[in-house]
């Protein structure tokens, strides 16, 4: 299936779920967060779509005013087509349904995105930090992140705006 056909299929099944976004690229589609788990289940189980592989989940911070985003790269081993789903989250309270039980790798990908951006994946059975230590403060890859001064007595290096890393 081509990208346009995939998009039309989703739109037909879940009217109003596909949002218009001018800034997106060729293979990207923005979906409403509320229905994500149903749409994801449909995308995985529908025989014409059959997205059985979750390639990657990328968290993106669009800047100080903008929302946080989760971007899902999906691929179908059977039909060899792909799509990228973008879901925006409110910056103050970023949360979306977890797809951990659909694609098993979602478990670790969601934990990583949670670790770096603080996006809460509701329904995830074991949502904790994966790369940073459990008692780390803040969400490192957010644009407004300010690192803690010390961690268990170890001084944490700071970033200088102009000169890069100190």
């Amino acid at each position: 299936m081509t990208f346009a056909e995939i998009k039309a299929t989703i739109e037909k099944q879940y009217p109003g779920s596909v949002l218009e976004n001018e800034g997106l690229g060729d293979h990207q589609v923005e979906l409403k967060g509320e229905q994500w788990i149903e749409i994801a289940t449909y995308m995985k189980t529908d025989p014409t779509l059959c997205f059985d592989q979750l390639e990657c989940i990328t968290g993106v911070d669009t800047g100080e005013e903008g929302p946080l985003q989760s971007r899902y790269n999906l691929h179908s081993m059977e039909h060899r087509h792909k799509i990228e789903v973008v879901i925006c989250h409110d910056r103050k309270n970023p949360k979306v349904a977890s797809i951990e039980q659909l694609w098993r790798i979602g478990d670790w990908f969601e934990r990583e995105t949670y670790d770096m951006f603080g996006i809460v994946y509701e329904g995830h059975r074991d949502l904790r930090r994966i790369l940073c230590p459990d008692d780390w403060e803040g969400w490192p890859l957010r644009k407004d992140y300010e690192g803690q001064e010390s961690y268990h007595g170890i001084i944490v290096p700071k970033i200088k705006e102009e000169e890069g890393w100190e």
């Binding site: 800034g23 690229g25 990207q28 390639e55 990657c56 990328t58 993106v60 971007r71 790269n73 990228e84």
Partner: peptide, 21 residues
Amino acid sequence: PKGSVYRRTESPRGDLGYYIV
């Protein structure tokens, strides 16, 4: 230019993808 790309390549360990915004 403004935009994003996801490209995967075959590294000896599997699909190595880079997502660049």
